[in-house]
Design a protein around this nucleic acid. Structure first.
Lengths: 147, 147
DNA sequence: ATGTTAAATGAGAATAATTATTATTTAAGA
DNA sequence: TCTTAAATAATAATTATTCTCATTTAACAT
């Protein structure tokens, strides 16, 4: 996991470089995205900020996510049930493993992913650009709780 | 790819076994899902059937997909832009590689996927149940077209 | 410091995809 | 053929996201 402070600064700088203003609302959103505890949803972000910023609009969260995504600084994870989750800490393709019980999301390091990509490139002749790899299972904690 | 005829029969039989009626609309939907050319969307299915069945309702397509999904006979692929695609031919987790130019979806055979799963299980201590693996890239055809 | 201006925001309306409702139709077994 | 619960068509309701527009404000110049 990258240092949230550094990620925050990186995103802010990128916005500055592209001529965008740094507003308090924007900073609050980026602070949460830079940390990306548990890959928050738009609602999560909005709820969290509303505690300090009672007038924070949902539209502002959406707008900022679109903007920062267009700069390549957040990764969007869409799920079939329509829930979108965001990761501003590691904004590039990487595998996840998700506990179907407690919904925890873990980022594993998988050395053999390179082998898989090589096999894929050879077999399909595609030029591979990025990926979305999610595994679903039950974490050791939830497994222990099962009787 | 499984034989679409066989897949059709399998799904129909499973519906019968669970006490569901076999209507013409239902059969038309299942016929398309059993083949799953290019993993159709709800709209694709509806449009295709409307040619023969002018009164076919969108809601019926949605309802049948929910039902057949609950019986484990179709795989739902949700994408971040909100588009959901369906595969009733191979209704279990399997990797895809998707051309970002022509949107073609290919199902590769990846022997090294087992190694990856093993590495993952060891590293995370999760009990792995299923997965969603999508690679995005450019197919050889589209690559050739680039100047 | 103050003024200027284009960008950003808040609030609510608009949109689009999906789900629910209800009256009507129909598949399947008696 | 009859009966009945399930399925359908049409449309209303719902929900997540995007748009609109009046207002505010960050950033820059003076």
């Amino acid at each position: 996991m990258a240092d949230p402070e550094k990620r925050f600064e990186t995103i802010i700088q990128k916005l500055r470089d592209n001529g965008h203003k740094i507003t308090p609302q924007r900073m609050a959103i980026i602070k949460i995205l830079a940390e990306s505890k548990c890959h928050p949803s738009v609602e999560d972000i909005h709820d969290q900020i509303k505690n300090n910023f009672s007038t924070m609009s949902l539209a502002t969260v959406y707008r900022n996510i679109v903007l920062i995504k267009s700069l390549g600084e957040i990764l969007e994870l869409g799920f079939p049930d329509g829930s979108n989750r965001y990761d501003g800490n590691k904004p590039y393709s990487h595998p996840h493993i998700i506990c179907v019980k407690c919904k925890k999301i873990v980022d594993p390091d998988l050395d053999s992913l390179e082998d898989l990509k090589n096999e894929l490139a050879v077999e399909t002749n595609f030029k591979i650009l990025n990926h979305r790899l999610d595994f679903f299972g039950i974490c050791s904690n939830c497994m222990a709780e099962e009787v």
